[in-house]
Design a protein around this nucleic acid. Structure first.
Lengths: 230, 230
DNA sequence: CAGTGGTCTAGACCACAAG
DNA sequence: TTGTGGTCTAGACCACTGG
């Protein structure tokens, strides 16, 4: 007990939660009390509890105190890499091809999602990412030239659209939806799989300070999987 | 500039990164310098930079200093709720049925993944989760009685296996894989969808201090999607 | 209103790793 | 070796919110 680090505190609190010494929903002692018990500064306790709360194991409210979460929500962090790096990390050679690039009026539902006027033209970009020459990912992307500034000059030969975006547009946030879909004939052809093959689809909307920059649908051929740990 | 909070610092640093005042890969000033510039304590700077590093925007190394990430890895946090709560959150009525519960020898590949002896019997549990009476999720779970202590006494009528686990086993970690798969005939029947429908599949392995507790395959029928924000 | 967490400060020492 | 981030402390004031 000579030297307490916030990690020691975290471990001990975690132990007490797991051992049901502090049961689900139960109020735990205040920071001041714990600091006295552990013989350390309150700031140290504070940091330990703050991080445990961020992990979803504790719930903290001013005046109400700190409680053990009733339902220990497990939280996983998902890294969203640039496809090229993701492919190269597996040791495979990365390549990508632009299948289609055109400026046109989007379908109505897309104009709504991108919050553009119905008569506003957008840039549609279809491309295929390859790993060791084999289809890896089929990408169907819409870009708003008004918010993706510099788009008309951008060339996507050396880098993919996502790579260009990440490096050139100050992204401020977005939304992600992960689901499954049967391959359409054109997707099946592009990805070189049978019609109807189950594809993992990631839909992503990206915002900058100027507004919505891009909406993209990424369709991954099996055996692609998103992996993470908890 | 009268009162600086770590949030102000975060915002300002973020602004400089986005404005390319501090370009990708570039070394930014040390904590002491920034503290002097912002007129605040070093601890305040430290917290701001630590959180930005946790968000993937900065890379920090002792002695080497703090750099702007070359590839701003986007990180999303994925909440893994208990299915009952997930369903009830949509306003639907939750229900679940155990389709099968038996103690038996697992296939070899599963024994390997669960790190059990080849002749060790496990408990297999197949169940169906329903939302407003409609199939929502088909669950195929294997449990190790040696690590899931209390399993033989556990009844899964009021609560699902996951709910029981969360409340009774001190989970210490695990692995998640998200992919897509075509519905097998039995899955299609259970979920009431056409054969070959693309299902979103979540494979999860859960550990406690005693070892691997459970491996589960969760197959979601469309239009299920995992959503999050970045 | 009062108690709890949230945060800042100023100073100190330590751990790691680059040169 | 030495500079950088990592952390702890003791004290203070503040912000939110429950009772």
């Amino acid at each position: 007990m000579s030297q307490q680090t916030y990690r020691d505190i975290k471990d001990e609190v975690l132990r007490r939660i797991r051992a049901r010494e502090w049961g689900p929903g139960e109020l735990i002692p205040g920071e001041t009390d714990l600091a006295a018990e552990f013989g350390c500064a309150r700031a140290t306790i504070s940091r330990a509890l703050r991080e445990l709360a961020a992990d979803g194991l504790l719930e903290r409210r001013r005046k109400a105190g700190t409680r053990v979460s009733l339902t220990p929500v497990r939280r996983a962090t998902l890294d969203i890499p640039i496809t090229r790096l993701e492919v190269e990390a597996t040791g495979a050679r990365y390549d990508h091809r632009i299948l289609e690039r055109q400026r046109r009026l989007p379908p109505a539902h897309l104009a709504v999602r991108m919050q553009t006027a119905p008569d506003q033209e957008l840039v549609q970009l279809k491309s295929l990412h390859l790993a060791d020459g084999r289809p890896y990912l089929f990408e169907d992307r819409w870009l708003n030239p008004a918010t993706a500034t510099g788009l008309s000059e951008a060339r996507f030969d050396g880098q993919s659209a996502n790579e260009w975006l990440v490096r050139n547009i100050p992204v401020s946030g977005g939304e992600i939806s992960i689901h499954a879909a049967n391959a359409t004939p054109s997707e099946a052809a592009a990805l070189d799989v049978a019609d109807g093959t189950a594809l993992l689809v990631v839909d992503r909307l990206t915002r900058s300070d100027l507004g919505i920059v891009t909406i993209v649908r990424l369709a991954y051929a099996p055996p692609y999987a998103i992996r993470t740990t908890i």
